[in-house]
């Protein structure tokens, strides 16, 4: 393998985007209104686009002949490197928006930093994906404010959603000093973005405490196994199938 560190990094980011896309796509036909159905499907499509670029590049770096499909559909849970945040079940709409807020507030500075990194391929992907992330962040922030500063019930559920996903934000910023972008350097911008949104939404930033991790080492929740079973079944049942 040419560059194992860059491979692991591209794989982790690609897996984040892929699993996020799969979870978001689960909302199709189930969102609270038709416009939101279209919105979540579009965000899923953007995430899938980024996943395809990142996994294709990871496959090339690995040099073992695995393409984007082999990496997406023929790995088991322990081989996935995504953060736990993206594999969490969708919960209610408020929890999904809390997840999207945390994910996009992390992906935007990450892709922006990537756009200026030394690796040409990752820089191109970052430069492209950051524009889409900015739109996702706007969308999530809009809903978090609307629900947080809405009725008593919407406020309660939005706060519950934020409280539920907050511990999983920690894993996103664990230091990797050797990586093309060290995620630890992004924490400040993430905190600024999220606390500004939560303040406007009349929501409280949760206390930091329990900080589950392990996703980057392939140790996942059982939720990922069910997600993969659904995502991979067709490709595994009909290897090489095309339409």
């Amino acid at each position: 393998m040419n560059n194992p560190l860059t491979f692991t990094f591209a794989l982790a980011l690609g897996d984040d985007a892929l699993i996020a896309a799969q979870r978001l796509a689960e909302w199709a036909t189930r969102a609270p209104e038709m416009e939101e159905d279209i919105a979540l499907a579009n965000i899923a499509l953007d995430q899938l686009g980024a996943a395809r670029l990142l996994l294709s590049y990871a496959g090339e770096l690995e040099g073992a002949g695995r393409d984007e499909d082999a990496l997406a559909f023929l790995r088991d849970d322990r081989e996935f490197r995504n953060c736990l945040l993206v594999e969490l079940p969708n919960g209610d709409f408020a929890m999904t928006m809390a997840k999207l807020l945390v994910l996009s507030a992390y992906q935007l500075p990450l892709y922006t930093a990537l756009a200026g990194c030394a690796d040409e391929r990752l820089a191109a992907i970052g430069g492209k994906a950051r524009k889409e992330s900015a739109y996702h962040l706007d969308h999530a922030a809009l809903w978090v404010k609307r629900l947080g500063d809405g009725t008593e019930e919407s406020h309660r559920r939005m706060q519950a959603g934020i409280d539920q996903v907050w511990p999983y934000a920690h894993e996103l910023f664990v230091a990797q000093p050797q990586a093309p972008v060290d995620p630890a350097t992004l924490r400040g911008e993430f905190d600024d973005t999220v606390s500004a949104v939560l303040a406007e939404a009349t929501l409280t930033v949760p206390e930091s405490g329990w900080a589950p991790g392990g996703g980057r080492d392939g140790v996942h929740t059982e939720d990922l196994s069910y997600l993969l079973a659904e995502m991979q079944v067709l490709h595994r049942a009909h290897p090489g199938a095309r339409w």
Binding site: E35, I38, L142
Partner: peptide
């Protein structure tokens, strides 16, 4: 604006 997302990306 009716919807931030439309018929294509």
């Amino acid at each position: 604006q009716l919807s931030r997302f439309g018929s294509t990306a």
